[in-house]
């Protein structure tokens, strides 16, 4: 199972971005999310994406980011394929070229490219935040601005439980193999689920007794051991993030010329090439992923 899990976690480091408080990073990642959903303009989306990548490089988390992008890219290629033949646009659609029963539409290519860029702009900024902040710091910061303590605990616990369950899964699979049961492929995964989940329930019961024995869930004032520093620059960054997001969103809503869906015309050869590339890219990914799963 190891190969199937996407490695998204903090990459330790001492870059300038690592040293920023998680809240401004969260504010900017959220801002980019809002802007990305507000517009389809490829120039704005790709600018956000490129700036995100530059910051990823500044933070020196490029390798970890690349691993995620390698999985994300082929999956998001399906958007181009789907959008090109059935655009998420009000009709009428402008056909570019027809291949057999399929027609590729101008709006579809435009929308597919926008969605791909949108996903990459959002995830790049989200990855930047996740890969440069300690999870505990993120949760503690969120708790400071009003997230309930219990939710903080649930999130922390979930992050801890995932690798443990993964290990337990491996143990159960090995146990199945040693009893001459099928030890690989989808056929082996299903029967292994039951012991893993039963084990998880037992673990959670034990943990809840243990937590209760340590005064967890007391009413009254709670304090936090983890201290996250908030400097003047962090607050400035948050303010800038909010202003930038609001300004961009306002501009996108007001300036109708940012809608390039009709002005950006694609050559039929480009359209066919893009769709074929997206289809092949996605299929190749599925084949490789399936092989990995079956071998694991």
């Amino acid at each position: 199972m190891q190969g199937v899990v996407i490695p998204i976690s903090m990459v330790p480091g001492d870059s300038i971005i690592h040293r920023i408080n998680p809240l401004p990073k969260l504010a900017w990642a959220f801002g980019v999310l809002v802007i990305s959903f507000a517009t389809r303009n490829p120039l704005i989306l790709s600018t956000l994406f490129v700036v995100g990548v530059i910051l990823i490089l500044v933070a020196q988390v490029g390798n970890a980011y690349l691993k995620v992008a390698m999985i994300l890219f082929p999956i998001s290629l399906t958007l181009i394929v789907l959008q090109s033949i059935a655009p998420a646009f009000p009709k009428p659609w402008t056909p570019i070229v027809s291949v057999g029963p399929f027609t590729i539409f101008q709006e579809g290519i435009y929308s597919g490219i926008s969605m791909l860029l949108r996903i990459f702009a959002m995830t790049t900024w989200a990855m930047l935040m996740i890969m440069t902040s300690h999870p505990s710091d993120i949760f503690t910061s969120l708790q400071k601005i009003g997230m309930p303590y219990v939710l903080n605990f649930i999130l922390t616990m979930t992050l801890q439980l995932l690798p443990i369950l993964q290990n337990e899964f491996a143990v159960v699979l090995n146990a199945q193999k040693s009893r001459a049961m099928k030890g690989s492929g989808f056929g082996a995964i299903l029967p292994s689920m039951v012991p893993v989940f039963v084990g998880a329930i037992e673990r959670v019961q034990q943990l809840s007794i243990s937590l209760e024995s340590r005064a967890f869930g007391s009413s009254g004032h709670k304090t936090s051991y983890r201290r996250v520093r908030m400097t003047f620059w962090d607050i400035l960054l948050i303010v800038l993030g909010i202003v930038f997001t609001a300004g961009m969103t306002y501009w996108i809503i007001v300036d109708k010329s940012l809608d390039w869906s009709e002005t950006m015309v694609f050559h039929p050869a480009f359209a066919i090439g893009l769709v074929v590339f997206a289809t092949l890219g996605f299929l190749a990914f599925v084949v490789i992923a399936l092989r990995n799963v079956l071998q694991a």
Binding site: H134, P135, S136, F153, T156, M157, L159, Q160, I164, E202, R203, Q206, L207, S210, L211, R214, A215, F216, G217, S218, G220, H221, K222, T223, S224, Y225, R226, R227
Partner: peptide
């Protein structure tokens, strides 16, 4: 293993004290 839940040893020990409102 069934009694531990936090990301660091310090946080694990602090868990109960946080609930009881100890100062940093």
């Amino acid at each position: 293993e069934f009694q531990l839940s936090q990301m660091s040893v310090g946080e694990e020990i602090a868990l109960g004290m946080e609930s009881l409102g100890y100062s940093y």
